[in-house]
Each structure stands twice: as C-alpha cells, then as structure tokens.
Design a protein around this nucleic acid. Structure first.
Lengths: 124, 124
DNA sequence: CATAGTGTTCTATTTGACTATTACACTATA
DNA sequence: TATAGTGTAATAGTCAAATAGAACACTATG
C-alpha cells in the first residue's frame, strides 16, 4: 500500500478500512485479517495497525475479541453514518479549498463537471 | 492561524501563501512581510516560515533578496499555472476519495450540488 | 494439555517536524 | 559609519509517529 507522507500512516489505514466497510468489501460482522497479516499486507508495523484499530474500536465501528480477532460492528446504521460523514468531510474540504482559490459556487460545480468530463475522455 | 495537526505546518503555510498569491492579496513583485513578522502573525517559529519559503523559492514562485526581503515572482504565467495546478489537485483528490466510496460520476456531481445548495440555505 | 493463532502491551530506538536561541550576512538610511 | 531591518544558517532540545522485537493473555482445536 502506498501512503501520502504528509499524513500519518495510521490515519490513512483508518480511511482505507473505512472505505472497505463502506464499499461492502467488509460487511457487518466480518472478521478482519489478523493484525499481523494486515501489517504484512500494508507493509507496516503491527503497532501501527494496532493504533489505527484502537481508534476505530473506540469509535465503535470495530469490535475486538481477544484470541479471536477483530470484527466489523453489526450496527449497519453506524456504517451508514460513517459513509455520510466521510462524504460530507470530503465535500466540505474541497469546497473550502476551491472557495479560497476565489472560485464561486458556480465555478466550483463547473470545474468539477469539466474535470469529470475530461477524465472520461481520457480514460476511454 | 489555525492548523490541521494531521499535516505539517510548513506545508499549510505554503498553501496559505499560494492562496494569497492567487486571490491577488499578494501580487507579482509584492514584498512579503518579514520572516520574523510572518512568524509572529502565524504564531510559528522563524525556522518553520523559512522552511516553507525555502521550498517556494526552489519552486520559483518567490524570490529572496538578502537584506531586502522576499518577493512574489514577476512571472504572471507561473501564478496562473499554480492556480490551475492547485484546482486540479483538489478535484483529483475529492474525485478519487468519493469514487472510492462507491459514488458514480453522476453521484459525485449531484452530491456536490446538493452540498452547495444546502450550504446556501444555511448561510442566509 | 500442548500448540497454533489470535489480540494486547511494553520497551527501546529512529526519524521528521517544530521550537528556541544565537550568530552571521547583507541593505538602507539617519 | 553606526544602526535598524532584513534574510540565512547552525545548534540543541522536545515531541509525535513509526519501527523492531519481545513478552503476555486469551481461544480454538488436535
């Protein structure tokens, strides 16, 4: 896995796992790979995995069972909330940033539409 | 100035200065505040300012004159390129992130439009 | 009950970011 | 030419993130 060296790795791991939970790659009740396996997969130290999981356990999206493994919460509602929160967070950020670059609301939408359009043309 | 503790401060300072150059708060040829003044304004150490400016000097957007001060490049073209690059960077990132959250191209545009609409209603 | 597979905890070490402080180099000007 | 205002550089110290490695606690199972 490749990381952005401007953001803590444990933080990026959290986001990665969030994504898997939201896209359904990981479903409620699913068992996560063992921490040592995750560490290997992500070419990262076990402690770093533990740090990411620790926060997610505190947040209630993952439940840990000593000796058994780590499991995605059965609380579907929580996953839904998580997705909404992540989306809003992203939109909020890009809005703030582009607004700071002097783009109006209309400019922002137009530039995104244009970006996606061009992207579509490139990736055919 | 408030910083996001997930990203290096010197990096956020660079972005702040970029923004000022792009919005016209700082124009080509303008003299920047003295490094010690910037340090006070941003409640940050001089070395941290220096680190940010150092990179911007390397990039060619700021020119330093020992004993005189730091100045925004006279190269308008460079500023324009900078703005384009920053916008694309933001769009690229939000697109990747929302795409990873299973949103289609249409979903992404719709959610942004909806976000801006709701925001407009709130901030009246 | 031994063993393998889990999560958990702890200590030690390294690295990058940031701060604090001081000194140095150059420019403008009273 | 002295002084104030600038950028530049160097040293030392603190802190958080990450790594490495070991040990411990619990569960399942042959």
């Amino acid at each position: 896995m490749q990381f952005d060296d401007k953001v803590p790795i444990y933080y990026q791991i959290k986001n990665q796992l969030y994504h898997e939970m939201i896209t359904g790659e990981l479903e409620p009740g699913d068992k996560l790979p063992a921490v040592r396996q995750l560490a290997v997969d992500m070419t990262v130290n076990v402690n770093t995995i533990q740090r990411a999981l620790g926060e997610m356990i505190t947040e209630g999206v993952i439940e840990s069972q000593r000796g058994k493994g780590n499991f995605v919460t059965m609380d579907h509602e929580r996953i839904t909330q998580l997705k909404e929160a992540l989306i809003t967070e992203q939109l909020e950020r890009v809005y703030q940033q582009l607004h700071a670059l002097d783009l109006s609301d209309e400019d922002i939408i137009a530039s995104l539409q244009n970006f996606i359009k061009q992207r579509g043309e490139q990736h055919v």
